[in-house]
Design a protein around this nucleic acid. Structure first.
Lengths: 350, 350
DNA sequence: TACCATCTTTGCAGCGTTGCAAACAGCATG
DNA sequence: CATGCTGTTTGCAACGCTGCAAAGATGGTA
C-alpha cells in the first residue's frame, strides 16, 4: 500500500490548507496567481497524484461506465467496443467491460441496484433478457440499450433500422433473380426481438417483389454464430428442394453457412448466394467475400456514449429516445461473384 | 444521487452497531448466531448493498484489475479476454479493459504512477513499447505481461514457447515436401520480440531438415492483421519465383494471405500451403480452414490472473516468473487439403 | 464471591477527497 | 472610520466503510 502523497502533504509543503491545494488541482477559479504557482510547484516536487477513489467517494460518482455485452469474442461487439472506449476516454470516463454469456440472470444483475454504486451508467446489449425485465431495473441507473430491444421511454435505444436493412438485403437477392431464399437466424419473440425485425423485413421484401415467402426456409438458431450457421445450412441442403440464396442474420452465421456450402462443393454465389449482416472484418476477407449490411458502428458507439453521459449529468433525465444509426448494403462476391471488386484490402472499421 | 442504504441504516434497524453489521456482511467469525440472523434480516429488508467505493477506499485497494491490450478487435485478444474476465470474476475482481492502439505513449501511461490508484494490478500485452520502458515503471504496480516480452525478474510473463511453436509449424510444411517457404510477419527487434522468436523457430526448422532458408522470403509487416497478410502475399506472388508455402505469424495474416491467393485463382494448399498462428475461430471456419498453432488460451488467462492476484495480495512480491502455456499444431485444409476432417463445427475456444 | 479466559460487540479514528459556509483580506465608498 | 463589496483562503463535516483496541458479556474455576 506503500505510497501515498496526499493533498495534505502537498499543503504542508506549500504552506497552505489542503482545501486550497484541491482548488488548484481542480483548476477552480479564484485562486491567487502566487498561490497557484506555489502549490503547483509543490505538486510537481512531490509527484502528487489525486486518489481517484477518494474523489469519487466524496463526489458520489465513480467515473466509470460499464458496457455489458453477451459475448466479447463476437467481432461485432469487439469492433463496437473499440469505438465506445475511445469516445468515453475523451470524456474522462473509464470503461468497464463485462460479458453476460447471454445468461438472463447475469443480465439482470448488471442493471439492478448495486451497479449504481460502481458505475455511473451502463451501455447494455441484452440477449437473453426479456423486454419486461428491462422495466423493473434500478430506476436511477442511467441506461443506454444497444441492438435488440426497443425503448420504453425510460432509456435510450441505439440501433439501425433492422426492418429496412433486412428488406434491402432480401431485395438484393430477389433482384439477382433468386426466388428460393432461406433466412437463417430467426428467433422467438421473447428473446429475439432483433431477429423478429429482420424476419419482418425479409417478408416485406418478398411482398414488395410479389414473390411468395418459403415459410419452411425460415430457420431458427439459438445464437448468431458460426456453428449455428454451419448447422442450419447443412439442414437446408439435406432437403429435396434446397434454396438458391440465403439471408443470414449475422456475418458469423454467413461464415458458417458458407463453410458448409464450400465443403460440400457447392459454388457461392453461382449455386447459392449468401448475404450477411454486421460487416465485420472477417466477412470482407472471407472466400468468397461476404455481401453484408453495414451498420455505422462508429456512430452507434459515439451516440451511445453521448446519450449516456447526458443522462448521467442531467438533473432531470431526458426522455428515452429511439435513435437510428445509418446502414448500407455492401455487395461483395458472395452474391455478385468475382466481378465484385476484390477490395477487401480497403476494409475499414467504421 | 438519491439512494443510499448505509451500514448505519441497517444497524439502526437491527439495533446493533454499524461495526457489527459490517462483521455480518463480511462473514467474520465471532458473531453470535442470534445477532447474525437479526442483522441479516435487516439487510434483506432494506435491500442493503455495500458501497464498493467506500470499502475500497477504507481498505486501500480498488478491487479492479486492468487488462491492457493493443487492439480489442483482434480475435486473439478478444478470446483471451473472455477467459481473463471469467477467472477474475471468480475472485471478485472487476476487469477494466483498455486498448493502447499499440501506441508506446499510451502503453507507458498504463504502467506508470496513477494506475496504482485505480487498479490493483495490470495484465499487459505490450506492442509498441520497447523492453527497456518496462523497467522504469511504477515499481509498486503488480504486473503480468502477456505474449511478447520476456521477464526481467520484476514481473511475470505468460506465453507459449514461440520458438518451438514456429519450428513445429515450419517443420510441418517441410514435411509436406515444400521447400520454398515464406514467412510473413517478421519485425525488427525493438518492437517485435515475438516476431523475432518465430523467425528463429523458422530458421531452426530449416536447419533441422537441412533445407536452406530463403532469406528473401522473410517478409516484414507493420502489424499482424489481414491487410498486412494480403499485401505481403501479393508482393510474394509478384516475384519470378513465388513460394510454395507460407508460414504466417498470425491467423489474421494467414486469412489475408489466403484471400489474395484465392482471388488470383491460386489453389490452397495444392499450389501454396499456408500455416497460421493463434487458432482463432475465424481460422477454423475459413475456406480453406487454416492449419494453425493453437496456444492454450484458457490456461494463459487463468495463469495470468492467478499470478497477478498472488502478486497483489502477497506482502513480499514473488520472483518474476517466465511461464509457459502449452501449444499444439492443428492440421487443417490449408496445408493437408480436403482430406483433413472438415470438423470446423467442433471448434471450441480453449 | 472474586477472578480469569473467551467470546461478542462497540467506539473511534481514518482512508483522501470535496461541499459548504464561514472567515479573512483588501479596497473603494459614504 | 465604519460599511459593504469582491476575491481568496480556510475549517469542518461528510462520503460509507474497515482496522484497531478497548469494553462488555458470559461462563467456568478457585
Amino acid at each position: 500500500m506503500g505510497r501515498g502523497v496526499t493533498l495534505r502533504d502537498v499543503a504542508a509543503l506549500a504552506g497552505v490548507s489542503s482545501r486550497t491545494v484541491s482548488n488548484v488541482v481542480n483548476g477552480y477559479a479564484n485562486v491567487a496567481e502566487g498561490t497557484r504557482v506555489r502549490v503547483q510547484r509543490a505538486v510537481d516536487e512531490l509527484g502528487y497524484q489525486p486518489n481517484v477513489l477518494a474523489r469519487n467517494l466524496a463526489q458520489g460518482r465513480s467515473g466509470q461506465i460499464a458496457v455489458v455485452v453477451p459475448y466479447l469474442d463476437t467481432p461485432y461487439f469487439a469492433e463496437l467496443l473499440q469505438g465506445i472506449i475511445r469516445a468515453a476516454r475523451i470524456q474522462h470516463y473509464n470503461v468497464l467491460i463485462d460479458q453476460t454469456d447471454g445468461d438472463p440472470e447475469n443480465e439482470r444483475l448488471f442493471i439492478n441496484r448495486g451497479s449504481r454504486l460502481l458505475f455511473d451508467g451502463v451501455i447494455f446489449s441484452p440477449l437473453g433478457l426479456p423486454q419486461a425485465a428491462l422495466a423493473d431495473r434500478d430506476p436511477d441507473l442511467p441506461l443506454v440499450v444497444l441492438g435488440e430491444r426497443v425503448s420504453d421511454g425510460t432509456f435510450d435505444h441505439v440501433g439501425i433500422d433492422d426492418v429496412a436493412a433486412a428488406r434491402e438485403a432480401t431485395e438484393h437477392l430477389l433482384d439477382l433473380g433468386r426466388h428460393r431464399i432461406a433466412a437463417i437466424g430467426d428467433q422467438p419473440y421473447e428473446t429475439g426481438e432483433a431477429a423478429q425485425l429482420r424476419t419482418r423485413g425479409f417478408r416485406e421484401a418478398h411482398a414488395a417483389r410479389g414473390v411468395p415467402v418459403r415459410e419452411d426456409f425460415i430457420i431458427h438458431t439459438p445464437r448468431f454464430n458460426r456453428p449455428d450457421g454451419a448447422t442450419a445450412m447443412a439442414h437446408l441442403l439435406d432437403r429435396a428442394d434446397p434454396p438458391d440464396a440465403v439471408f443470414c442474420y449475422s456475418d458469423l452465421v454467413a461464415l458458417g453457412a458458407i463453410h458448409t456450402l464450400v465443403s460440400r462443393g457447392i459454388r457461392v454465389p453461382e449455386d447459392v448466394a449468401v448475404v450477411g449482416y454486421d460487416d465485420i472484418e472477417d466477412g470482407a476477407y472471407a472466400n468468397p467475400a461476404i455481401t453484408t449490411i453495414s451498420p455505422d458502428k462508429q456512430m452507434i458507439a459515439t451516440t451511445a456514449v453521448e446519450r449516456l453521459l447526458l443522462r448521467i449529468s442531467g438533473g432531470t433525465p431526458p426522455p428515452g429516445l429511439e435513435l437510428r444509426a445509418p446502414h448500407r448494403l455492401i455487395p461483395r462476391q458472395s452474391t455478385v461473384g468475382r466481378q465484385a471488386s476484390p477490395a477487401a484490402a480497403s476494409w475499414q472499421p467504421r
